[in-house]
Amino acid sequence: MRDVSPGRAGGLAATLTVPGRLDVELTAGPGDVVAVVGPNGAGKTTLVQALAGLQPAAGEQWLAGADLTGVPPQERHVGVVFQDQRLFPNLSALENVAFGPRARGVAAGASRAVARDWLDRLGVGGLAGRRPGELSGGQAQRVAIARALAADPALLLLDEPFTGLDVGVAAALRVELAGHLAGYRGVTVLVTHDAIDALTLATTVAVLDGGRLMQVGPPSEVAARPRTEHVARLVGLNVIRDGDRFRAFTPSAVAVSLHEPDGSARNRWSGTIRSAAPHGGAVRLQVHAGHDLIADVTPAATRELGLAPGRRVWLSVKETAITAY
């Protein structure tokens, strides 16, 4: 039997099926931040839409003790920060944030007070009178987060909240968001394609691929022992799947040579260099050798061996450098 106790106790418990696109079972406790990672087309946005009630889905959903199965989005108390923000362009930042409380029947004055408070908390109180068109990307994202939180949701859905922001703006907002989420008692589901989000903001990482959850666990566990190629690439690990077993090793543990190395027969591969790019103080090679593998080599070795895209090389790893799970 499926355990729905988190959903009854204040958390989230959902089994959602959208034919051909999504088939997941997700549970989270109050205060949890679930980072959903996965490649494009994995069903991340479909999951967000289904949880918000915007996408019809078969299955069951419990949130904060309430059965949301078949409940329309208006009555779900699920806040969404959309990928494209969707701030109402005809309303000021303040009116956007006050929209949620107003819609739930709070008086106009009280709604504006709530909105002002949330704008202040997100550091954009001074922009209350501006229309969305007059806000920068980072400011608009702050207003969008304030708008979602001002409606007092039991579940907060953030769909790629840092996409399209300047690197510096995204970094600052990430730190702030961590603070807000730490004080938030509801469940947060954060869709991201950035490993940093998953590692710094999340209490749980859920790996979505092909509409299914491939791996769910604490960030450190998922980062150390990824079970999908996508996450392996995100965290910069090589992962080789062998049935139900996985073997992971770091790019720096990979030795690169032009000729077939001696020794252990198992951990070596021959392939063609796809790309070579600076990575920290090293050069990161992407090599297609049956699997897609990454190897870090020194700039000196890159020159000496002539490691350029198109070159055929041998890769090898010592057995002791491999983590099997």
């Binding site: 918000a52 989005p73 108390h77 959309f82 929209f99 819609a103 409606a151």
Partner: peptide, 15 residues
């Protein structure tokens, strides 16, 4: 898309 955003904020279709 804006209708969907309004719905998640609790607005009825008429509002």
């Amino acid at each position: 898309g804006y209708d969907a955003a309004a719905a998640t904020l609790g607005a009825s279709r008429w509002l």
